[in-house]
Simulated scan of single mutants.
Amino acid sequence: MKSKNQNSGSFSRRSFIGTSAAALTAAAIPVNFAMASPASKGDNPNSNFGGVHIGAITYSWRTMPGGLENIVKYCKECGISSIELMSGDLETYLGAPESPMMEIFMEIRRQQQAQQAEGKEEQQPQRRGRPELSPEQQARMDKYNEEVREFRLNVDMKKVAAAQKLLDDAGIKPHIVKFSPSRWSDEEIDYAFKVAKALGAKGVSEEISEEAAKKLGPIAEKHSMYAVFHQHMQFAEVDGFSYDNFVGISPAVMFNFDSGHYFGSTGKNPCDILRKYHNRIFSIHIKDKTGPDTDPPNQNQVWGQGQTPLEEVLLLIKKEKWPIYCDIELEYNVKPWSNAVKEVKNCVNYARQILM
């Protein structure tokens, strides 16, 4: 990897690996500020390090068996007490119908492979995004959409309470649930905020757009919660993109600032955004990446092997005592001898070494 933008004085993976095992397992001492540390219950995890909550978006374990019970297991193995919870595992636990989309994608893939084998692939038009569905496949999706809407509008709140108890008994606090509901009906959006609130979360997250912010902001206000918006590479790719365009939509509009996407696409220091918008940034996604002027550019890396100023970001949040949740998003390729749980645990230990 040829670097044109090395960050001097960064916390390297080599120095991390070289630290003592005792340091890696040192107990975290919570600091009393706006974001309280979760209560310890026996062997339950506590990932508040020096007053900074290190958590994870549960998307990080997408390559592992799913289900809310497994999420609890992974959190305990990684020592994580704070999560941005993807809604799929939650809704499965609550009894939602299973989406046929993955099965349909597999059908389309098999069809493409068959056409390729017959030498007919070049006859198919090239499309980006969601593949075109056959009438039969679309009918299956329409049926599912109606069934899941019915489920959401009639959710059994006793099951929601059971999900909350499962997490709470394990010492795991979801601060966001990622329902991404902006294209749902208003009634279904109400369901998303109602369920997230019952779990103890403070917001529902969605991908950022002006349309989504205008739709979710007022509904979040009604529920006394936040609509939290995640960005990818818009700061680099969209002319005029700025958080300034969103802050006036609603006081309930907050940001899930992806510091890795920001640095990887712009090469700029994420601390600049944190300083300017810290009172509107609810959480950040943390990952290590190469910058845009590196060969290869904007690539996910094992923590400590990229150029994202992870140490500077975490220490700034610690110094300023900003109540910003810091969530690991595991996106680099996991080697065959490891797995996502082990790698997230490595990231937790890396962050702890910086903060403690």
Rank of each mutant, 00 (worst) to 15 (best):
K2V: 14
T19S: 15
T19H: 14
T25H: 15
P30Q: 01
V31P: 00
N32M: 12
F33M: 07
N44P: 05
S47A: 07
F49S: 04
G51F: 01
G55H: 06
A56P: 11
W61L: 02
G66K: 11
I71M: 06
C78S: 13
C78Q: 11
T92S: 12
E98M: 10
Q112S: 11
E121G: 06
Q126G: 07
G129K: 05
S134N: 01
S134P: 02
P135V: 08
E136K: 11
A139H: 09
V148I: 13
R152M: 10
M157I: 09
K158M: 10
K159Y: 11
K159R: 15
D169R: 07
A170H: 04
P174T: 08
S182N: 13
S182C: 11
R183E: 14
I189S: 01
F193Y: 11
V195F: 06
L199G: 02
G200I: 01
A201M: 07
V204C: 08
S205Q: 04
E206Y: 02
E206Q: 07
E211A: 15
E211W: 13
E221L: 02
S224A: 14
M225Q: 07
Q234H: 08
D239L: 07
G248I: 10
A252T: 03
G260R: 00
G260M: 00
Y262Q: 00
T266W: 00
K268R: 14
C271I: 10
K276T: 12
H278N: 14
N279Y: 13
S283L: 06
I286K: 00
K287R: 11
K289Y: 01
D293H: 15
Q299L: 13
Q301V: 04
W303C: 05
G304Q: 05
L315G: 03
Y325G: 04
C326A: 09
L330S: 07
Y332A: 10
A340F: 08
V344P: 07
C347M: 11
